[in-house]
């Protein structure tokens, strides 16, 4: 039991580090696509250290202090529930029966904590950003839940582990190929989850500066920074487990999460930005209907 907790802690640190590295790689790739050199891939580590060691002298109340912690805990909780390497005693994390539903709840927790903290910071941009974020969440949750329900019905299980086991035995058993419509819906909603560019309405640098974390500085921001990276890592892992057949070894996990990571990155670099209502309308039409196709197919085939 204790060794399991120890290994979970180690995986968490590894997840944060890999998430930060992926963030650095994405900045580098973005820079290359814009025909410039860009920062080093370790830039996010430097930023994190600098932020962590800066002085913090702003007080806005209790919830203001707790919000970055909520964000970090939400990210870490999601991360720890997703098995990284299946069948491995160390790297399967705390996966248990019915955990897929818990994961979907955990994914909301960080946003809610952020909403409470940002509301207490008192900056006018923060509530606008929070409103946008929660509306956007209502948008992308629908297609994502539909596609997850499709997988649950198809495999008759509600655990991530069960879904991974159902995909074993060759590349064509992956849900990406057996349920392509559900996969398409989920991958489109991943763009919304990562707030990649067509759906970048929360931070929206041209309109509301940096949105919810406007008043957050130094150490708080470093917690949020690491929370964001581990949360992104959890999402990549979840999508790897749900659609790309899980991972049998650590190397495979690295490779597959990198593939999932490339998808929002390439979309984000070539698209302009939606407005909020356009974004929500998009999520409630196209991905939702695509997901419903597979749901109908599964229901009729039973």
């Amino acid at each position: 039991m204790w060794s399991k907790i120890f290994y979970a802690f180690l995986t968490l640190l590894g997840g944060i580090a890999y998430g930060l590295l992926l963030g650095g790689i994405s900045r580098k790739i973005t820079a290359r696509m814009q025909n410039r050199r860009g920062p080093t891939v370790w830039q996010n580590f430097i930023d994190l250290w600098k932020l962590f060691r800066k002085k913090t002298a702003v007080s806005h109340g209790v919830m203001f202090y707790l919000a970055p912690m909520f964000r970090l805990v939400g990210g870490a909780g999601t991360f720890l529930l997703v098995p990284i390497v299946i069948d491995s005693p160390y790297l399967s994390n705390f996966s248990f029966g019915g955990d897929l539903i818990v994961i979907m709840y955990f994914m909301v927790l960080g946003c809610l904590g952020m909403a409470l903290g940002a509301a207490e910071s008192g900056h006018p941009h923060a509530p606008i950003g929070v409103t946008r974020g929660l509306s956007q969440m209502a948008g992308y949750e629908l297609p994502f839940v539909i596609s997850v329900v499709v997988l649950m019905i198809a495999d008759k299980t509600a655990t991530v582990e069960g879904i991974v086991r159902a995909q074993q035995g060759g590349i064509l058993h992956w849900h990406l190929f057996t349920h392509p419509f559900a996969a398409a819906a989920a991958f489109i909603s991943l763009l919304g989850m990562m707030t990649s560019y067509p759906f970048q309405v929360v931070l929206a640098p041209q309109e509301i500066a940096v949105g919810p974390p406007t008043e957050y500085s130094s150490t708080f921001l470093s917690y949020m920074f690491s929370g964001r990276s581990v949360f992104a890592m959890a999402k990549y892992l979840l999508f790897m487990d749900l659609f790309l057949g899980g991972a049998g070894s650590l190397l495979e996990a690295f490779a597959k999460t990198f593939l999932v990571f490339l998808w929002p990155l390439f979309i984000t670099n070539v698209f302009p930005r939606f407005r909020l209502e356009q974004s929500v309308r998009f999520f409630w039409t196209w991905p939702t209907f695509i997901g419903l196709v597979d749901l109908l197919r599964i229901s009729l085939m039973r």
Binding site: P205, V210, S217
Partner: peptide
Amino acid sequence: LGMRMVGTPRQ
């Protein structure tokens, strides 16, 4: 050089 524009003085 590791520089970035941020939209708020706090950061």
